[in-house]
């Protein structure tokens, strides 16, 4: 079922259609929330809130963008708002703290030895990145979204999105280089 018929069906009162919509986009929502907050406990609760908001706001959705982008925007904004409310710090300072932490937590020889594969090593390093970096990486590489779509979801200028994306990859490449050196030594 395409998104247009799915939305029409939900608005017509078909509850099964909304359950189908949830199943179609739950992965996107869970991943996005997960990238923004490391609190595992919060993810499911926030995802439930997001889909409740989607249901309430659906009558106002006019297909000006893709349904996935629109749902992603709701997920992003809701998570940021909750993070702002629950954290004593502002979100900006939270981000700065994360970035600082990343540089402190740079890969140690033990990290390199512990990682059993390149995939595991890269994933571990992605998890160390600041939330915005992780999020744009996910939207660009996994969801295959375009820059304008990421801009719409995050509300960040295109330059900032690109900067986060390029910077994240550069940081990861530097860490990956250390891992590959170990591989060569073994």
């Amino acid at each position: 079922m395409d998104d247009q018929s799915l939305v029409k069906s939900v608005l017509g009162g078909n509850q099964q259609a909304f359950e189908f919509l949830i199943r179609k986009y739950e992965k996107l929502v869970f991943h996005m929330i997960h990238k923004l907050t490391r609190e595992e406990v919060m993810v499911e609760e926030l995802a439930q809130d997001v889909f409740m908001k989607v249901y309430e706001k659906l009558p106002g959705f006019r297909f000006d963008s893709k349904l996935s982008t629109w749902i992603g925007t709701i997920a992003y904004r809701h998570t940021i708002n909750v993070l702002k409310k629950t954290s004593k710090m502002t979100y900006k300072s939270l981000e700065e703290a994360n970035e600082e932490q990343f540089f402190k937590e740079k890969t140690t020889p033990a990290d390199i030895l512990e990682a059993s594969s390149v995939s595991q090593f890269v994933q571990k390093n992605i998890d160390k990145l600041p939330a915005h970096y992780r999020n744009v990486l996910y939207l660009y590489h996994i969801e295959e979204m375009s820059y304008p779509e990421i801009v719409e979801i995050t509300g960040m200028p295109e330059g900032t999105v690109k900067n986060y994306l390029f910077r994240a990859r550069k940081l990861l490449k530097e860490e990956l280089s250390k891992y590959m050196q170990k591989e060569e030594l073994l």
Binding site: V122, H141, I142, R169, L176
Partner: peptide, 15 residues
């Protein structure tokens, strides 16, 4: 390294 990294970035993490 970027080739290898991009390959890894496109692998979805299990959730």
């Amino acid at each position: 390294l970027y080739e290898l990294l991009f390959e890894q970035l496109e692998k979805e993490k299990e959730i």
